[in-house]
């Protein structure tokens, strides 16, 4: 991914905002005591660690795919690396703005849900290509998004399809995407610099509070993704559950991915937002997140099996309710303090 900004423009931006001088006005009553700049610095550190973890996990996957295809690595060891890569992606699914959006990464890394089997169809095409093409990340990157990501590798690993050398090409492209996301955020002229240069002349963030709000909305979105999509799709209805709509059901990672996404949200709350709210508010919110994690680990069966088992299904339903209720916890304990509850404005796009 090309850097989004040039150093020269950033410099121009920063100097012109300071030339206009007046300190950033936050137009929300009662919000003046919130140090959005400090929150932003902490939040960017969390993002850097989360995007960095995915970059490093994807690089590992690229390397081990080559070893695995050369017969130099046992399958279970390769699967562990694959699992780590997927769990490193999970927290990033919440941040669908900035570089993730700019590079189309959400679908390229994780083409899901896939009701129409685009992944199967795209892989069918890919496997007709020469082995050389299949192992070429540039060739993969030019093809369908559905054959570029983690679900494509999963499909190759857990069906009769010929997994090698396609997984080497797909994982090398994935590593390129992961590197591009990290660079897009944190290179010298990346999105983080745009965030830090918030001000009247900034094309995205008019003030520091706007980034707080964007990030807060992203955490809400992450919880909605877990509750509505990751749990809601396999749950279907009591009469009609859809176990095979569970994410990563073939690899058995459904619950682990959800747990990793929820952890990503609570990490950002604790380390990014935490110091900006009273400690009892933060603690109450973190306790609620921990309770959801406990429930998630106590379902007693893999999610695809639990949704069709009348005795266990109720646990998944209650987990879904608790997960979606975390959004209210967030609003009460964090959003209301920061005056960033998800609201309504003509400026939020359409």
């Amino acid at each position: 991914m090309k850097p989004l900004l040039t150093a020269a423009l950033i410099f121009a931006l920063a100097s012109s905002s300071s030339a206009q001088t007046s300190p950033v006005e936050i137009s929300i009553p009662g919000a003046v005591d919130i140090d959005h700049r400090a929150l932003q610095t902490r939040a960017l550190a969390v993002l850097e660690s989360q995007f960095g973890a995915f970059r490093s996990a994807a690089a590992d996957l690229e390397k081990t795919s080559v070893l695995f295809c050369a017969g130099a690595l046992p399958r279970d060891e390769y699967l562990a690396v694959f699992r780590t890569a997927w769990l490193a992606w999970a927290p990033l699914d919440s941040y669908q703005f900035g570089p993730v959006e700019q590079s189309g990464a959400a679908l390229r890394v994780n083409f899901w849900p896939d009701k129409k089997n685009f992944t199967g169809r795209a892989l069918h095409q890919l496997l007709k290509a020469t082995p050389k093409a299949q192992s070429d990340p540039a060739f993969i990157a030019r093809g369908s998004a559905a054959a570029q990501g983690l679900p494509a590798i999963e499909r190759l690993l857990f069906t009769d399809a010929e997994e090698c050398p396609a997984i080497t090409g797909i994982s090398a492209n994935l590593s390129d995407i992961a590197d591009g996301l990290y660079t897009g955020w944190f290179s010298g002229d990346g999105w983080a610099d745009l965030v830090r240069a918030a001000g009247p002349d900034n094309p995205v963030y008019l003030n520091d509070a706007e980034f707080t709000k964007t990030l807060y909305t992203a955490l809400h979105f992450g919880l909605t993704r877990v509750g509505d999509a990751r749990l809601g799709r396999p749950l279907g209805s009591f009469d009609r559950p859809f176990p095979k709509r569970a994410e990563a059901w073939r690899a058995g990672l459904t619950a682990d991915i959800m747990s990793a996404q929820i952890s990503g949200v609570s990490d950002m709350l604790r380390d990014g937002f935490g110091a900006a709210v009273p400690s009892q508010n933060l603690q109450r919110a973190l306790d609620a997140f921990a309770a959801v994690q406990d429930r998630l680990h106590q379902i007693g069966a893999p999610v695809p099996e639990a949704v069709i088992d009348p005795a266990l299904r109720i646990r998944v339903e209650s987990l879904q309710n608790m997960t979606l209720a975390l959004r209210s916890v967030l609003n009460r304990d964090i959003g209301a303090r920061l005056k960033v509850e998800t609201g309504f404005s003509a400026a939020d796009g359409d």
């Binding site: 669908q96 959006e101 700019q102 590079s103 959400a106 679908l107 979105f221 999509a229 799709r233």
Partner: peptide, 16 residues
């Protein structure tokens, strides 16, 4: 711009 209801308001295909 490609969007899907299960991805709320995320824009999924900006590069192409």
């Amino acid at each position: 711009i490609r969007t899907r209801p299960d991805s709320a308001r995320s824009k999924l295909n900006l590069p192409d």
